[in-house]
Structures are given as C-alpha cells and as structure tokens.
C-alpha cells in the first residue's frame, strides 16, 4: 500500500511539474543549411539561452513557467513572432508587457552570429557560438562562454561573465555594465590592451598588468589603459559601480 502511495505521489508531482512548465518547440528549416547565418532576438521578456550546435538546423523552445496573474495573458507561444529569411532567424515580441517566467532556449548552427536583446529578461546565456556574439539587456545577467569571435555586450543593472577562448587582433571586444560586475576570463597567453572605465568600482587582475606608456592621455576621459603580456588588441570594459575582474582561463 505504501509503495502504491509513493507511485501516486510521484505521478501527481510529475503532472504538476508538466502543467507548471509548459514547453513548445519549433524546428526551423534554414534556407542555406551549413552556411553562415544570423540569429536576431529582440524580446521584452524572457530569459534567453542560445547554444551553438552541430548540423544545419535551428530549434526554438518556449518554456512557460508563469505564475499567478501572469498566466492570464494567453499561451506563451503567441507572444513571439519567428521568422526565417535567407539564414537569418528572427524572434520578435508580439506583446510588450512585463511578464515573468518565460524562457527561450535556442539551438542554432555554431557558425551563426547572434544579436540578442531583452529588456526585462533576467538572464542571457550563450555557449558554443563561433560567430560574433552581440547581447544586451537592462536588468539582465549575461553569461557568455566559448567565445571565439567579436564580443559586444551591454547590460544596465546585470553582471557580465565572459569566457573568451580565443582573443585575436582582428576582433572587437567591448563589454559594458552600468551597475553590475564584469568578470572576464582570458587565455593565459593572451596579448591584450585593456581600456577600462570604471568610475566608482574597482578592478583586479590575475594577470600582471603593465602601464601603456605609448598612449597619449586624453584629458576628456577617465579611462585606465593597461597591457597584458606586452599588449595587443583592444579590450574595452566600462562600468560605473561594479567591479572589473580579469581572470586567467586556466
């Protein structure tokens, strides 16, 4: 009897969890499978997770974890417009309303570049993308890993964590957060010149930082310029109230 009761409780919990997190997935056929492309996401709500995957397909999953009054605004999948045109996958909001508990999980080919932004979404996570990563949010934490290309990231009140696997001279690296911390991991042998502008925060580094004596100081700006391993391509980091932490990847 006890065993049966356990099964019943487990089934009830399972059905509760299904109704709690409703999930809808869409497979997106690309116009040019295998070719480079672009993901554009501009939504008002939703945590967003973007993963670079092998293969020539894109998949979008909408996870609905809304509670209370937020559940009254109709099915979550009706909130988003999804378009594929010439290997550009675009996700836009139909409703511009603050709703908590929505998540977008997006799987795209690794060789795509991404341009992802959310206003109220609490988090943007990106991993395994070989193209350019361009993300922005308002109160949004940014977690970016496996970065191999240009990184342009901005948030107003969130923290930024960026793991750059490959830092090269031809890419652009520009990360900013008004009130959040910026924690950045760089390869041990990286050669970079840091341009840091953090008015009221602090910065620390696991690398030895040296002065850049070649640059003429511009009196109009308060930025600090430091070199890692002799200097190299620019890494621009701006925040006003948070910490800037530079870490070694290994």
């Amino acid at each position: 009897m006890k065993k049966e009761l356990k099964y019943i409780i487990a089934v009830v919990f399972l059905s509760l969890s299904i109704s709690y997190a409703q999930t809808v997935s869409y497979d997106i056929e690309l116009s040019k499978p295998g070719s480079m492309g672009m993901l554009k996401v501009d939504v008002y709500n939703a945590s967003i997770r973007v993963v670079g995957a092998m293969g020539g397909k894109a998949k979008i999953t909408i996870i609905d974890k809304r509670k209370g009054k937020d559940k009254n605004y109709g099915p979550a999948e009706f909130y988003y417009e999804i378009i594929e045109d010439n290997n550009v996958v675009t996700i836009l909001n139909r409703k511009r309303k603050k709703i908590d508990g929505l998540e977008l999980e997006i799987s795209i080919p690794q060789n795509f570049s991404i341009n992802v932004s959310t206003y109220f979404g609490p988090k943007i996570e990106v991993e395994g993308i070989m193209g350019e990563v361009n993300v922005s949010g308002y109160s949004t934490d940014l977690s970016l890993t496996d970065l191999n290309n240009s990184v342009i990231a901005n948030t107003n009140h969130g923290n930024v964590l960026a793991r750059i696997d490959k830092f090269t001279d031809t890419r652009t690296y520009f990360i900013s957060s008004y009130k959040g911390d910026i924690e950045i991991f760089l390869p041990n042998n990286v050669q970079a010149t840091l341009f840091m502008d953090n008015g009221f925060g602090n910065y620390s580094s696991e690398f030895e930082l040296t002065l850049d004596t070649s640059k003429q100081k511009n009196s109009s700006t308060d930025q600090v310029i430091r070199k890692i391993n002799g200097g190299g391509n620019e890494l621009k980091l701006i925040n006003y109230f948070g910490e800037i932490i530079i870490r070694k990847a290994n």
């Binding site: 901005n154 107003n156 900013s176 957060s177 008004y178 502008d197 008015g199 009196s219 109009s220 700006t221 308060d222 701006i238 925040n239 006003y240």
Partner: peptide, 15 residues
C-alpha cells in the same frame, strides 16, 4: 541608457 548619459556628462564635465 544611464551609461551613455554618464559618458556624455563626463565628457562635458572635463571640457
């Protein structure tokens, strides 16, 4: 954006 506002104000302040 407050960060853009602050950067412009800093620029004006230092001018």
């Amino acid at each position: 954006s407050p960060i853009a506002q602050m950067e412009i104000l800093q620029l004006i302040k230092n001018s």
